[in-house]
């Protein structure tokens, strides 16, 4: 399984902090995004936002990054700390 976590405005829009996905169904971060978009129209609209960032195992990555079982994949808006 792959653990998927969401933060900040994205978590609130989805009303979901985390979920699990079967690793057999996805190869890349973009595949994960696609699977999540397929959930329903609201998720599709949320994930169509091009500015969303992604991380795998706490490192920022782009959509082509490979994912495997045991990974933690995160999606979040551009960061605003400091």
């Amino acid at each position: 399984m792959i653990k998927i976590v969401f933060f900040a405005a994205l978590r609130e829009q989805l009303d979901c902090a985390e979920l699990s996905l079967n690793a057999d169904d996805v190869k890349t971060v973009n595949d994960v995004k696609q699977r999540l978009s397929d959930k329903n129209s609201q998720w599709r609209q949320t994930f169509s936002n091009a500015s969303l960032l992604s991380a795998v195992n706490h490192d920022m990555v782009d959509g082509s990054h490979l994912v495997k079982s045991g990974d933690e994949v995160a999606f979040f808006p551009p960061v605003t700390g400091g």
Binding site: A8, S51, A55, P77, V79, T80, G81, G82
Partner: peptide
């Protein structure tokens, strides 16, 4: 660094909150 700010604002006596844009 993955930090996000949500601000609580008061406008014309009304309080609301919103996530800051980068």
């Amino acid at each position: 660094a993955p930090f996000w700010k949500k601000e609580q604002i008061t406008e014309a006596g009304k309080t609301s909150e919103n996530w800051l844009d980068a």
